[in-house]
């Protein structure tokens, strides 16, 4: 019974949600809303579990004086200060985020918001380092990615058109170098012929391509974003939608039970 009852609940709740998608007639029209409200109420109570887990985990670290225990102490102190300050400020001013609330004016605006902004700002450095690794012209695919990304980046900045020619020629030379390395490394004769043909094609189209992009950089950027990029994205989304149906059916039919003990 310990397994059957949760499976039955999953089946009934899942089936009702599916029916409510296709039947707008009452009582199905409010079914999803009602079940979501129940979920919100239940999840509200589970926050008590969450806080209990957080405090116990960190208290245990302090009690055992395990490595890095001062961090655990910082977490508990921050929790208590935030909670007490928030309650006191809320009671005094009527609302925790009223304009004369000290919690809002000192804690929220001068501690919480800058901390969040700092974490978000770090992202730009991580993007640079990840992009460097992804764009390193180690293989043909990575080189093609580098060239496409260069066109997109140039097309999205005001100075793009002005620096297009040198950047594009550097990219073309880079790809030629990579293709030469690939020709040298490959043992298959047919692959080698393919690379040589590609190299010839590149030499032939390099000048007309530069000329074309010089006047149409913005249009080319839009084309890359709207056609190949969007096609790939929609392919993934289609797979996601079908995969989502598969997972949902597995859960509704009780085939997927990994979330239960």
């Amino acid at each position: 019974m310990k397994r059957e009852i949760p499976l039955l609940i999953s089946f009934i709740a899942g089936t009702l949600i599916v029916i409510s998608l296709f039947v707008p007639h009452p009582p199905f029209n409010k079914m999803e809303e009602t079940l979501n409200s129940w979920y919100i109420i239940v999840s509200g109570f589970t926050f008590i579990l969450g806080i209990d887990s957080l405090l116990l985990y960190n208290w245990d670290k302090i009690r055992r004086k395990s490595k890095d225990w001062p961090f655990a102490l910082t977490v508990i102190l921050s929790f208590v200060v935030t909670l007490v300050w928030g309650i006191v400020s809320g009671v005094r001013t009527g609302h925790i985020f009223s304009t004369n609330s000290t919690f809002r004016n000192y804690f929220y605006l001068y501690i919480y918001v800058p901390l969040q902004a700092t974490m978000f700002a770090i992202l730009s450095f991580f993007i640079a380092s990840a992009a460097y690794r992804a764009f390193r012209a180690r293989s043909l695919n990575a080189t093609l990615l580098l060239i496409t990304a260069s066109i997109i980046m140039l097309g999205r900045v005001p100075l793009g058109n002005a620096v297009l020619i040198p950047v594009l020629w550097i990219a073309v030379l880079l790809i030629a170098w990579v293709v030469l390395l690939e020709i040298k490394a490959t043992t298959s004769a047919s692959t080698r012929v393919g690379y040589i043909l590609m190299l010839i094609l590149m030499v032939v189209i390099a000048v007309p391509l530069t000329k074309f992009l010089y006047g149409n950089l913005s249009a080319a950027t839009d084309w890359i974003m709207d056609i190949p990029q969007m096609a790939a994205k929609r392919g993934i989304m289609l797979g996601l939608a079908l995969g989502g149906i598969a997972v949902s059916l597995r859960i509704i039919l009780g085939i997927e039970r990994s979330y239960m003990s």
């Binding site: 991580f126 993934i236 989304m237 996601l240 995969g243 989502g244 598969a246 597995r250 997927e256």
Partner: peptide, 17 residues
């Protein structure tokens, strides 16, 4: 994809179990 060693793309993740 850029930062990790292996990436399960969308539906691959759903097929994992």
């Amino acid at each position: 994809i850029a930062a990790t060693d292996y990436t399960l793309i969308g539906e691959e993740m759903y097929a994992a179990s």
